[in-house]
């Protein structure tokens, strides 16, 4: 396999959605209908597709922004990883336009729930949330969009399969203690875990054992390398925008060992992500996380493609990082 520099990763991700389309649901899906649940072709009812679009528009570059604003005008769906929580009418796609990309729209429209399954659509309920009321002294709560994603109980363990790749942590789970990611393989020295992240003030950086032990601020780190993986200090959840957990093989052959990566919450909920043995181009994305209205939404990527670390970061929308070489960030 040769290393390509033309972002083959992102383009390849779009091929998944180019498989035969599922039967059209009774209700037209949102243009940004996202399917976090896995293969659209195999699980048409488990909608919420984070995969790349079928027909990317060159005029609309991919973005991993988490847009909480309302769109100013209807437009063709952007190739975006945005998570739009806007309350206004959704953009209407041209007829025949396939569902676009990695957007997690929470528009107020009728949920597109194909028959025969549990929708994991992030579309907001058909009725808009009630306008925030106000207490006599002015206390208000922002509208709370029910994401309707699978949750996890304290002490529960949950394999994050291709069919059930997403877990939404509660506000308390997203804020209590830390999130610990550890690798469980027969020879732990064969793989290291790292995190690439974007903070609430739009800083992008990495934590990678041996290179950058903690970040973004070494004096008050949010993310840090541990003896067996990486950890996120959730006391700082309000400063986190998004993250990607990745694995880097340490063998010269860049072969990943088979095993499992566990992500554990303060309440001992354990998410299990398979680590698939095989050759890589240097790094393998495992898990993405977005903070949505105070809740951490985690998705096991089950990404069939590896890449250099630089390619992985770029493919998941982290483009503000400088590099010494395709494997070594400048941190």
């Amino acid at each position: 396999m040769t290393i390509r520099t033309d972002l083959p990763y992102l383009r390849a991700r779009s091929l998944r959605a180019a498989q035969p389309a599922p039967p059209a649901p009774a209700v037209s899906p949102s243009p940004d209908l996202a399917d976090v649940a896995g293969s659209v072709a195999e699980q048409p009812s488990a909608s919420l597709d984070l995969s790349a679009p079928v027909v990317p528009s060159p005029a609309q570059p991919p973005s991993a922004s988490l847009d909480l604003s309302a769109p100013s005008a209807p437009a063709a769906p952007a190739v975006s990883a945005s998570l739009d929580l806007g309350d206004s009418a959704p953009p209407t796609p041209p007829a025949g336009t396939p569902p676009a990309g990695t957007s997690l729209t929470l528009f107020d429209e009728t949920p597109a729930t194909p028959p025969g399954g549990t929708s994991l659509s992030l579309d907001a309920p058909s009725q808009a949330p009630a306008a925030p009321s106000r207490s006599p002294h002015g206390h208000t709560r922002t509208a709370d969009h029910g994401l309707g994603l699978p949750t996890i109980n304290a002490g529960e363990r949950r394999p994050m399969t291709e069919n059930e790749p997403v877990v939404e942590l509660t506000r308390m789970q997203s804020a209590a203690g830390g999130l610990d990611a550890k690798v469980a393989v027969s020879n732990p020295s064969e793989v290291i875990l790292g995190l690439v992240f974007e903070t609430g003030d739009s800083r992008e950086s990495l934590v990678l054992p041996g290179l950058s032990q903690q970040g973004p601020d070494p004096r008050r780190p949010i993310f840090r390398a541990t003896t067996s993986g990486v950890a996120v200090n959730l006391r700082r959840i309000t400063d986190i925008h998004r993250l990607v957990l990745f694995a880097v093989p340490t063998r010269p052959s860049k072969q990943l060992p088979g095993g499992t990566v566990t992500v554990t919450t303060y309440g001992e909920s354990r998410l299990e992500i398979p680590l698939v043995a095989g050759p890589t181009l240097g790094a393998q994305a495992l898990l993405t996380g977005y903070v949505v209205e105070g809740r951490l939404v985690l998705r096991a990527e089950h990404d069939p493609y590896s890449g250099t670390l630089q390619q992985i970061c770029a493919a998941y929308g982290y483009r503000e990082i400088s590099w010494r070489d395709p494997y070594t960030p400048l941190v």
Binding site: S133, H139, M172, R235
Partner: peptide
Amino acid sequence: SPDHVVYFNQLVSADLSTA
């Protein structure tokens, strides 16, 4: 309820009495 616990990641209680 979980909405009646107020802390840095949930600044206002569900009934708006406590913030």
